[in-house]
Amino acid sequence: MNPQHEPTLVVDRLTTRFAGRGGSVAAVDEVSFHVAPGEVLGLVGESGSGKSMTGFSILGLVDPPGEIAAGSIRLKGRELRGLPAREWRALRGDRIAMIFQDPMMTLNPVLRIDTQMIETVRAHRRISRDAARALARDALARVGIPSPDERLRAYPHQLSGGMRQRVAIAIALLNAPDLIIADEPTTALDVTIQAQILFEMQTLCRESGTALIWITHDLAVVAGLADRVCVMYAGRIVEQGGTAQVLETPAHPYTRGLLDSTPAANAQPDATGRPQPLRQIPGMAPSLKELPAGCAFRPRCTRASDLCGQVPPAVELAPGHVARCFHPLPTVPEVKP
């Protein structure tokens, strides 16, 4: 976090609604955050929390019946909301790049890697094929692909899943974007490959000053990667702050519940030698169609009161640590018995 830097991306009260039978639902509801150059922001939530839709909104990829209903998205001071489709296309792949869970969303199976990479460069910049090819080769080398010249001539199906994801990352890096949005890019990969990619992404973003939004369901992934974390529930950011603040002293009961649900965190066996049951969150995530009024987490929350029938405002509990909760947990580190 470098407060002296102007943030690369400022998202302010972004709301994305989907019209459907029986009214419209807010998949993203008044979401505000910012990312600084070289910073990694973890966007964490379970399925249906709106984390991917937040990413799609920033990329201008919300298709009808969805629409960005309110708020603003500013990239380096430039307002993106309401941009014509042609200008969005010019931005994507150039100033904003994306990485998906399935690298085949990015890669065309019938084209060689070099063809695809050179095209990506030349779609946004007027340079020769040879220069573009050199850039492509550099990008492959930077993401840790051994013998990049050989890989350039390969087709996607000739590469392993981890390799393909690396190529997708290299394509994202090609035009030195200001912002990369990565949606669960390591979820389908093995632990050892995931570790390598996480490690490399961190270094790359720091060195190039690219801002990175890492969308994931896995708190453990952001723990080792992100500088700051936003936790989403039912379309809203319920808590955000520095990674240590959110993961070590969570203020929102939902964040606490997620941490307690993660098995790695509390595997201390009890006196009988058996592990304790996980402290699970009761109930299940609500459908966006039938959200309770006020705090959406209220029906599953042990701390809820009548007050929670209203939408809780975002309250800054510590510098940079914001939660939307009327009854936040104490944010001083407590000693657990």
């Binding site: 390799m163 390598q196 996480l198 453990a220 723990a223 080792g224 990667l225 941490l259």
Partner: peptide
């Protein structure tokens, strides 16, 4: 595997225990 499994500990990885691909 143990070194590389993501954990909730907030610390950046400084080394990689296993190189290369399966």
């Amino acid at each position: 595997l143990l070194a590389e499994a993501p954990t909730l500990k907030v610390e950046k990885k400084r080394f990689l225990a296993i190189q290369g691909e399966l």
